[in-house]
Design a protein around this nucleic acid. Structure first.
Length: 766
RNA sequence: CGGGGUGUGGCUCAGCCCGGUUAGAGCGCUUGGUUCGGGACCAAGAGGUCGGAGGUUCGAAUCCUCUCACCCCGACCA
């Protein structure tokens, strides 16, 4: 595509409304424009990326036997009444004004309606049906650009099975497919246990991307594999203690003492002896909830204990039901009948401080076993930062994240309410056992940009870049430059390499470079007058920022090689070899669906070597999470890459970073010098070939060569002069000696220079 | 839904508190010329019912009332 003819509205200034980087860059780079709150138009460049992402999703869904549908977004409202989800969604669902229709926020109902009519036998099962389509949700507050919109594109799929084992299988297939999708899209992700919410069902997991722009909080353990949404996370924490002697209860006047901290300070009681009371209304019944000290109630956990309508009580209700305002509520002397539940930490606790249900009074020495009838104890608290991991006692970390996918085991929730039944082998009728699985397409793009950008713009990965290469005609007034650019453009197009060609006239070079960096296409081919004079073309790698000058006629090979090979992107201070190998193995395992022999084959290593690596890097494929994908340095094509190739590339790149200094490189790689020497030996020939001198070195080398040539010429001249017969006759012995000495000098000098050159090359090759 | 903020050429914003010529700037756009490797320069132009409605006033972008839209924080969120 020619930039002069296409629609690529880039912006120099940061749009005022955009706060998060992905939002800013999607607008600046001209991927999309906003039409209303949470509604976006995708422009050609943005849609090109969407198509790439959707294609990856299709390939992976098809690979697990998914069949693509295209369902209507406009749904009869009756359909949603069957499952009672008109009420469940409430204001979130868009209703059509002039017909009894709704805009579908998801598609369980439509799928189940089809399944109900046609999946009548166990022989028809299992099925995986999916679609990639617009979803409509009337979000109360759209935000952060495409991260939370009212209309968005979603891949949603549904599995129908005859058995629960079948559901497990379909669910696992999706989990594997999702890992591959995110890996191929270049996302660093986590898999966490999640709450199923109103979707219902027995199990759900979320695929999360760590980001400051995220709206979810994750609890992560950096040591083991524990990772969970804060809505369901737990930690290792001690219960309130039970004192040997239960003191008798006593009412105490506590004027103006409301919060738990104030109570604790006023009564000089530790927080671990204070019970906080909260009142919720559950389906018209008041519920009194106790938390220890300052523990935060986790409403999601509460909701899973008390299914149905649940809300905090209003202040007037508090007074009416308990006889006191918030801050003085407790278990003793309640006016109304309450259901009483408490957090597990309070089980069997005694000598506690509680409100007295009388304003400005508290009761001390409450014994939960003696004075109160607690109906149930449950884990209701919200995990706090630095608490200990429930699996390995390591301090937990809480971080923000964006949900890019969610998979649910629905079970029979929808099939039962819609009577979607099938007959088993014995002719007995059962509801279909279903799963539902979603991926937000725009969120993948926004998350990718959150993870892959710098101050200048986006840095696309090969897998989802809108174009493979960005061809820049630096100066459209130079005939030669235009001619060569046009040739490249034709050639690349012929070879089916997608190319964005900046052929704009009257646009200054700086403008073109800035635009190219903003758009972030991975490879920039820069055709300029300066380099063209020497028959050279500059190629800039947007991800690494590295520029290379190559011969004009090698451009096509270079591009082709780049497109077909994997990437190793290193930070300027290098990276440990083990880290890269670990990432390689994890990613290969994902691509190999966890099949170890397949992975070993892809890596071209033995199975025992793979096992050794799995052990060494502590990789547990079943519990794969952020631990493993914390940082990303390599990009793999979908059929993987051999381990040797990666190691070789890593070493070469590290040596370049270390400017050929072997001990520095070894330190960067965190391996011993002898190991590095061994590896160098192993890849010796290729390494020499791949040595890249930087510009300065190149110049220096040329200089030395010229000098040597000059000296050699001088020497030859002297020699020839010396050895011509005519001269010989003329020259006296002493003179001859002089010449000989001079030649000796020259020889000496040449030898020094050759040594110097060798040293330089040696240093580069290291 | 609660709190805060913003609506002025295509974009980013100034002007508003304290009402008063023809509403400004930079970027972008058009035309001509110069320039051409990191967001060039000169000159001449086009483009705005100041979100909308009502009010106060001799006079409103500016003050008042209502309303709509958008953004941010919170609540909510499969």
């Amino acid at each position: 595509m020619r930039l002069s003819q296409g629609f690529f509205p880039t912006q120099k200034e940061v749009p005022a409304d955009a706060i998060v980087p992905s939002h800013q860059l999607m607008l600046r780079a001209g991927l999309m424009r906003q039409l209303g709150a949470g509604i976006f138009s995708f422009l050609p460049l943005g849609y090109a990326v969407m198509k790439k992402v959707m294609q990856i999703i299709r390939e992976e869904m098809d690979a697990i036997g998914g069949q693509e549908f295209h369902l209507p977004a406009l749904n009869p409202i009756e359909l949603w009444e069957e499952t009672d989800r008109v009420k469940a969604f409430g204001d979130i669902m868009f209703h059509v004004k002039n017909r009894p229709l709704v805009l579908a926020p998801t598609h369980e109902e439509v799928i189940t309606a089809i399944a109900k009519n046609y999946l009548k036998s166990y022989k028809d099962l299992p099925q995986i049906w999916y679609q990639i389509q617009a979803k409509f949700r009337n979000e109360p507050r759209p935000k952060s650009g495409v991260l939370r919109g009212r209309q968005f594109t979603m891949k949603d799929s549904y599995s129908m099975d005859a058995t629960w084992e079948g559901l497990d299988n379909s669910y696992d297939l999706h989990a594997e497919a999702y890992k591959k999708i995110y890996t191929r899209c270049g996302l660093k992700f986590f898999i966490v246990g999640a709450s199923s919410g109103a979707m219902g069902g027995s199990r759900s997991q979320e695929f999360m991307v760590e980001s400051q722009a995220g709206e979810d909080a994750l609890v992560l353990c950096d040591k083991c594999d524990y990772a969970a949404n804060i809505e369901v996370a737990t930690s290792k924490i001690s219960s309130a203690q039970r004192f040997e002697k239960s003191e008798s209860i006593k009412e105490i006047h506590t004027p103006n003492v409301k919060t738990i901290d104030e109570v604790s300070a006023f009564l000089k009681m530790p927080l671990s002896q204070c019970a906080k009371s909260l009142v919720y209304i559950h389906e018209e019944t008041p519920v009194l909830i106790f938390m220890l000290g300052n523990d935060q109630l986790n409403e999601t956990k509460l909701q899973s204990v008390l299914s149905g309508n649940l809300r905090p009580a209003h202040p007037e209700e508090l007074l009416q039901l308990t006889g006191a305002n918030a801050g003085s509520i407790g278990p003793i002397g309640l006016k109304a009948k309450f259901k009483i539940i408490a957090d597990k930490r309070l089980e069997n606790a005694n000598n506690l401080v509680c409100g007295a249900n009388k304003n400005d009074y508290h009761i001390i020495n409450v014994d939960f076993n003696r004075d109160v009838k607690i109906d149930e104890y449950h884990d209701l608290r919200t995990v706090e930062d630095k608490e200990l991991c429930p699996h390995c006692n390591n301090p937990l970390r809480i971080t923000k994240a964006i949900e890019v996918g969610h998979i649910f085991k629905l079970g029979t929730k929808y099939s039962e309410s819609m009577k979607a039944n099938f007959l088993d082998e014995e002719g007995k009728e059962h509801p279909l056992i279903m799963g539902s699985y979603g991926i937000g397409v725009e969120r993948i793009i926004a998350c990718f940009i959150e993870q892959h950008h710098d101050e200048y713009g986006i840095k696309w990965e090969k897998s989802i870049t809108p174009y493979d290469v960005h061809l820049i005609c630096v100066n459209a007034n130079s005939e030669e430059v235009v001619k060569v650019s046009e040739e490249f453009y034709q050639q690349l197009q012929q070879e089916k390499i997608s190319v964005l060609y900046d052929d704009r006239k009257n646009v200054s070079p700086g403008f073109k470079f800035k635009d190219a960096d903003l758009l972030g296409i991975p490879l920039q081919i820069i055709v300029g007058e300066k380099n063209l004079k020497d028959g050279k073309i500059e190629i800039k790698n947007r991800q690494t920022g590295k520029r290379e000058l190559i011969n004009k006629n090698e451009v096509f090979n270079f591009v082709n090689k780049y497109i077909n090979e994997f990437n190793v992107n290193l930070p300027s201070d290098g990276v440990q070899m083990d880290v890269v190998i670990k990432e390689l193995i994890v990613k290969t395992l994902i691509l190999a669906e966890g099949n170890q022999s397949k992975a070993a084959k892809m890596l071209n290593i033995s199975r025992s070597q793979l096992r050794y690596r799995l052990d060494r890097h502590n990789i547990n494929f079943e519990n794969l999470n952020k631990n493993i994908l914390k940082q990303e340095y390599i990009y793999l094509p979908s059929d993987g890459v051999q381990m040797d190739v990666v190691v070789k590339e890593l070493i070469i790149k590290t040596l370049i970073l270390a400017e050929g200094n072997q001990s520095k490189a070894a330190k960067m790689l965190s391996i011993s010098r002898s190991q590095l020497r061994y590896e160098l030996d192993k890849y010796k020939i290729e390494v020499q070939k791949s040595v890249i001198l930087n510009e300065e070195d190149q110049k220096r080398k040329e200089q030395l060569k010229t000098e040597i040539r000059y000296l050699e010429e001088e020497r030859d001249k002297l020699l020839s002069e010396h050895y011509t017969e005519e001269e010989q006759q003329k020259i006296k012995l002493t003179e001859e000696e002089q010449y000989k000495n001079k030649i000796k000098d020259f020889e000496e000098k040449i030898k020094q220079l050759v040594d110097k050159l060798d040293e330089l090359i040696e240093k580069k090759i290291a």
